[in-house]
């Protein structure tokens, strides 16, 4: 059984589903951010796999993956800075306790 596009797509779907579960169900905001990074990486695997198997003569998927990486880096920097600001103001990063905009 040779390696095909489907293997990579299913691998990335598994990684995305694990990340989705973690991002929705965790209380610790750092773990939520880590799961979001995992989901972005799963999308990157899909992009590169399509680029390799469907259009190997162009590199469009890899260019998209580079842009996703840059946006992920920006997202991580801003997200973690917001986390530090929240921790300084509320002394917690529990996503259930950060609810001052609710009431």
């Amino acid at each position: 059984m040779s390696l095909g596009l489907e293997h990579y797509l299913i691998l990335s779907a598994c990684l995305f589903a694990i990340g989705l579960f973690g991002a929705l169900s965790k209380k610790n905001t750092i773990v939520v951010l880590m799961c979001i990074e995992m989901m972005l990486n799963a999308v990157n695997i899909t992009m590169v796999a399509f680029s390799r198997y469907v259009t190997p003569q162009f590199l469009t998927g890899q260019v998209f993956a580079i842009f996703i990486m840059v946006v992920a880096a920006a997202e991580a920097a801003v997200g973690l800075a917001i986390l530090i600001a929240i921790y300084r103001a509320h002394k917690t990063i529990d996503s259930d306790k950060i609810n001052s905009m609710k009431d």
Binding site: I10, A13, A17, L20, F21, L24, S25, K27, I30, S95
Partner: peptide, 24 residues
């Protein structure tokens, strides 16, 4: 404090499993 799950754990698990099944 670790990383405990919130009360959305079971719905999130179901959502992830349904998503994975649909994707596969």
């Amino acid at each position: 404090q670790g990383s405990p799950a919130n009360r959305l754990r079971v719905p999130a698990f179901l959502l992830a499993v349904v998503f994975l099944g649909l994707m596969i």
